[in-house]
């Protein structure tokens, strides 16, 4: 079960729009951290994902374990939410 979802995005990132669109279509709520607005959280996104890329979707489960998906990748995103 999913406890919460955080997505790290930037203003110009089209793949971020797709992750939000897909989550919205599936009825998931999420918190968005826009790195253009909050550049100080860039390090956090990098530490979570190990990559210098957005979108980074962090799915926190009920037991507080986390699954991190980089990019708009439905073959990883769908199982991470299952």
């Amino acid at each position: 079960m999913v406890k919460n979802i955080t997505i790290f995005t930037t203003n110009t990132c089209a793949y971020c729009v797709m992750v939000k669109k897909w989550l919205g279509a599936k009825g998931y709520r999420y918190e968005e951290v826009n790195l253009d607005v909050n550049p100080e959280r860039q390090k956090e996104a990098f530490e979570m994902s190990g990559q210098m890329a957005v979108p980074v979707t962090v799915v926190t489960k009920q037991d507080d374990s986390k699954e991190v998906v980089v990019g708009y990748n439905l073959s990883k995103l769908a199982p991470a939410l299952a």
Binding site: T10, T12, Y15, C16, P39, A53, V54
Partner: peptide, 12 residues
């Protein structure tokens, strides 16, 4: 990287 609008912001 291959997408500047996606990943450029990491290179401030």
């Amino acid at each position: 990287h291959y997408c500047a609008t996606c990943d450029g912001a990491f290179y401030r």
